[in-house]
Structure formats: structure tokens, C-alpha cells
Design a protein around this nucleic acid. Sequence first.
DNA 1: TTGGTTTCAGAAAACGGTTACAGAAATGAT
DNA 2: ATCATTTCTGTAACCGTTTTCTGAAACCAA
Lengths: 355, 355
Amino acid sequence: MARRANEASEGRRRSTIREVADRAGVSVATVSRILTGSYPAAPSTRARVMRAVKELDYVANAHARALAGSPSKSIAIVLNSVISPHYAHVAQGVEAQAAAEGRLCLIGTTGGDPERELAMVKFMREQHAEAVILVGNVVADEKYRQRMSQYAHALAAIGSRLVLCGRPPLGADVPAVVVEYDHAGGAFAATSHLLSAGHRRILCLGHRAGYTTAEGRLAGYRRALAAHRLPHDPALEVEGTMEWHEGYRMMTERLAAGARDFTAVFAINDLIAGGAHRALVEHGLRVPDDVSMVGFDDLPPSLDLNLTTVHLPHEEVGRTAVRLALEHEARGGTPPHVILGTHLVVRDSVRPILR
Amino acid sequence: MARRANEASEGRRRSTIREVADRAGVSVATVSRILTGSYPAAPSTRARVMRAVKELDYVANAHARALAGSPSKSIAIVLNSVISPHYAHVAQGVEAQAAAEGRLCLIGTTGGDPERELAMVKFMREQHAEAVILVGNVVADEKYRQRMSQYAHALAAIGSRLVLCGRPPLGADVPAVVVEYDHAGGAFAATSHLLSAGHRRILCLGHRAGYTTAEGRLAGYRRALAAHRLPHDPALEVEGTMEWHEGYRMMTERLAAGARDFTAVFAINDLIAGGAHRALVEHGLRVPDDVSMVGFDDLPPSLDLNLTTVHLPHEEVGRTAVRLALEHEARGGTPPHVILGTHLVVRDSVRPILR
DNA sequence: TTGGTTTCAGAAAACGGTTACAGAAATGAT
DNA sequence: ATCATTTCTGTAACCGTTTTCTGAAACCAA
């Protein structure tokens, strides 16, 4: 079917609201009002305008729109990387909620570098994003905190919001929405689960000072022990980063050292659990028959391992971040600080101990 | 250290180029020129301006900038979902390359719905993205193709580009950059690998008519058989979607049917391989001892299974998409169409057959 | 000095929308 | 028929930049 004149495609620049107005025989103001729906035009006018829009294949210029005062309709998300499952889920949540609220999603990755994070926030500020959502932990020195809280103030001054997602607040006087996970609560539940099964020597794999996520989980582990009137044994708390090969390393070294001085493992995340699992298998130990294990995060690896683990509402945190930012932008007041709950997902990686 | 007057944070609106100009005692034109670096101003003027920028915490308004004519410096990526590892890797590549070229990344997900994809493209068009990158396959009816190629023309008319990533071209006359994978080549290599090991009855799991990805891989499988002067046996080509549970289903049904009429499996992707693997194990068959297996994609599951598989340059495809779009935008001419090569990653899931 | 080049900086016109304000047309009441 | 409303539409200012065109200094050679 031969298309009409194919005007829009003919190497010409895009059509403007003025051209639409001319073709419909009305003023630009009318076109604008009809398209934004800010005013109920007469049906006949409306029809003429819509026809002109169709014929010219008119698409409004978001930049002109934003410049003229209407909000930019965009949400920015800044994270470590997109390929890590956890971040991917959070990003998915952000994007989904943003789309549901008619917003576009700007995305930037930092590779965990605070400098790049700061640069990204500045970049997003140029774009007038309605909210800038920072996801995950960064090792934050004092200079970083100062600069970031300056950004928070700057964003707040123009009716935008900084949102901290899965990371601690910057300070009481810094206007930022905060959405955190209850790491300690989850770790408490996980450890209690092992304790209830009769385990007393529980290895805690992967804590690390300065990383609030790991610290929170270690705290929950200790609290659970304390609730059972057990002291925590520093020899059972193994330090390491939250990666598969670190889990493998920690467990391998432990087993190589000789005595198997534990009956259960609380891995601070599922990746560590996965690595530790491999190391156990290589030493002829089976989960859960020989060693019980609980993880944290509830990501794909835990499914493959049939691992009992703590579920983090990854996607929910992203949705909540967007929702709160937008609500708060409208309402004002003190930025909300919410802590999302976690829960234990029981699979098959724990056996009771008979005494 | 007490900060000066903290002016920018004091609930006031953001500062403009005019304010910077006033404070530095120059005109807005000069400020603009210095900030964009469009020509070398006198050092003293430059210093004054930069100081004013710092003091006012001035950040340029990207919308005003884009409106005034400079390119928007943004790349849009539209994909199925962010949590699928394959798409996540592609997105990572796009974001990385975009950042490297000083561009911001707009992201949108469709959930595989062609309607939402079209809406997203329109949305991105409003934002004047320099390129719109469409990732992954969609079931495309004729109406969709028409609309999408109309968009391609519209984008081309304003110096932007539509990029198709991992999906076939829309047509010869549609101005779109295309970056594809060599599915057939990869499948040929994978199947040849099994054939060289002496396998003759090779199950092909997961082809599906209408899905170009699956079709390409099936074609490669058949071509490899043909190269060995073997006919392809329709009974060995099992239909299914590219998901874990489908792999599980296909293999379970196969084994339940009775006779084990194959010695090796070519799974059309790693997820299928994973599901099939589980089914085999449940029937007491081990990989590679009892059955050899090759997958496709080289994603996390294949690592866990120690699966020999075809590596797809996931991230590379994203980087290439951005690079080509930007290059082509500058150069013009016929949009490039590249096919990225794949290669076999040999792990430990294939055993030679002794005759 | 003078006149011709450079260099640097300013004035003002876009860019493409939104919206306050005002005016015209249509409606209803008298 | 007249006037007061109500309903719709047009005029024009403005958003914050970039950029073209032009003018003023500053420099150098004659």
C-alpha cells in the first residue's frame, strides 16, 4: 500500500507544534492544551488537532517541554553494575515502577567507584531527573559524604530527591529518602533456624568491617546466639568479601586447617554459600547430610543449591524507592526512612542435630 | 570547616548561566563558550567564570542545551527485562560504551510485548535520544513491522538511529543499524564438536518456528550433520521454548517414553541444558559419563554445570551497537549490518564415543 | 600616527514548548 | 435586544541555553 506523501520521512527535520497548529487552523496554545490535557477543548477543535498530529507524525519535544516548566518525567538510577543479579532486580523494580508512573528511567553504572558515583549524580542533576536513586553500598570517606550531602541539598532545592537504596543514611540533616533492608533481622532468623535445629557451632562466613550490609548481618547472627545464651566465638567468624570465590577460599582454608569444628554454616550471602558448597563437596562433605547451611539474598544460585536462605525483596526495594520519592516530592516534609522486612525461605539445606 | 553562605542549598531555585555571567562580570555568551569549550577565552576571563561556577554550584540545564541545538548526548536501550542475564550483559555493554563516549543511557523494558516496545520507542523519540537500541527478539506481525519501520524513518530524518541488536533486519529499505550473532555458526561448531567425538544420535532440544534465534541454531545443527553426510532425523529435533523448565520437560518426556535413542544433546541454550541436565540426573544418567551435552549462550548456569557451550559476546554486542550507531550518525550512508562471531568454550560435558 | 589583522566579548535571535492574560463567541436571563 | 456569564481560543512572554553576527580592543607593520 503506497503511503501518502511520506512527508515526515523525507529527510526533513521533525515537525513542531507550530506546524500542527497551522495545519489544524488553531493556535499553538490550543494544541498544547489539548495534548497535555490541561484544558477541555471543544470536541471539533480537538478532532482537527488530533488529525493534524497523526498526519504530521508529530511528537512533542521533551526538552522543550521540560524547559518550559513541566516536570521532566524521569527517574535516575545509579548502581554498581547491571549484571549482578541483585542490582538487576532492583533496577527492574525501579524501571517497572517508573514506567507505571509514566516516568522514563535514566541509568548509570559506577563499578563501585565513589568518584564515578558522584560524577553520575552530577550528570543526572543536569538532566533534571525528578529523583536520583543510589543503589548499594560504597566505601564512603568523609569527603565523599560531604560532597554527596551537598548534592542532596542541591537536589532538594529544586524539588528533586536523592534516594538511598540499601545503604545507610548520610546524616540526620541530609534530605534524602532512605530505603533499607533489615539485614540484622534476616540474619537473626537464619541463625535462629540453625539453632532451633540443634546446631551450636555455626560458622559465619564473609563478614567485613566497614561494609554496613555485612556488618548488619553479622550483628543479627550474634544477636541470635545471644538470644540462646551462647557467646559468639571469634574463631567462627570468618572475614571475606561477598563473592563466590571468596566463599570457596574461606571454606577450603578452613577444611585444610584440619579439624571440622562446626556443624552448620551461615553464609552472609548466597554467592559465598555457593563457593563454600563447592569446597565442601570437594572435601567429600554433603549439604545438608554432613553440614547444614543457610544463605542470604535468595538469588538464582540458592535455587540451584536448594539452599535455605533469607529472601530480600530486591524488586520491591526499587519500586518503593520510586514510590516514596514521588510521593515525597509531592508532599514535602521530612524524607521518609523505611526498612523493608526480610523472611526466611526454607528449602533443603538444613538437618536437625540429634543429641 | 564552616561553609561560606551555602547559598545554593538555601531553598532557592537552581542558578542559571545568567547569574554566573553577572557574578563573573561577563556576558552569557562568554560563559557558554567557556563551558562548552567552543573557543579559547582569555585566561583571566576563564578563571573568573570558573570561580563563579564553583561559588554558585552551577550545573548546566541539559534540556536547555539540547533545545538550543547541541545533541542530547543520550542513548536509549529498550529490552525485554533487566533480570535476564543475557539482556543484563547487553545492557551493561551499552551503558559502558555510552559512558565511555560521554553519553547518558535511557532504559526501558517491554516484557516482550511489541505494543510496549513501540510505545517505548516513541517515548525515546520524545527524548531525542541519539540512538534507540532495540534488544532481543519480538514476535513481529506485519503491522508491527510497518510501524517500527516508520519509526526508523522518523528517527533517521532527525539524524538519530534505530539499532536492532540480536534481531533480524526489518527490511532492505529500513534505515537501521543491525548487530546480530552468528547463531548458525555457533550451532555448527557445537554440533561438529559432538560429531568429532563420535556421536551420531544427537538430540537437538528447543527449536521453535518463528523465532529467528532458535531457527538459526537449528539450521547450524543441521548444517553440521550435513557436513558429516548425515541426514537430520526429525525425531531428534524437539520443540520447546528457551526456558529451564522446558528443558526439563523435554528431557523428562523423552526418557519417560522409553528407549534412550541418543548419546549426546545439543541444547539450544544453557537454560534448556540446565533443565535437561536435571532430568537426566533424576533418571540416574550422568553428564558427561552417560550422555554428552553442549549448550549455547555461556551464561552462569553453564559455569555451574561445567558445560561446554557456545560463547555469545553479550557485552560486546551492546558496545558495538553504541559504537556503530554513533559512527554512522556522524558518517551517514547505508547503515551497517554486522554479524558478531561466536566461539565454543570447551569445559567438561562431552566424552568421546568408542566404537 | 595610521590602517589592517587578530582576538576576545557582547547583543540578540533562535530552539519548541507552556501558560498567564485577555479577548471573542456562544449562551442564558431579563 | 441587551447585558452578564460562561466557554473556548489567541497573543505573547518566558524557560536556559547555543550561536551567528557584529563591534571593540589590542597588536603589528609600514
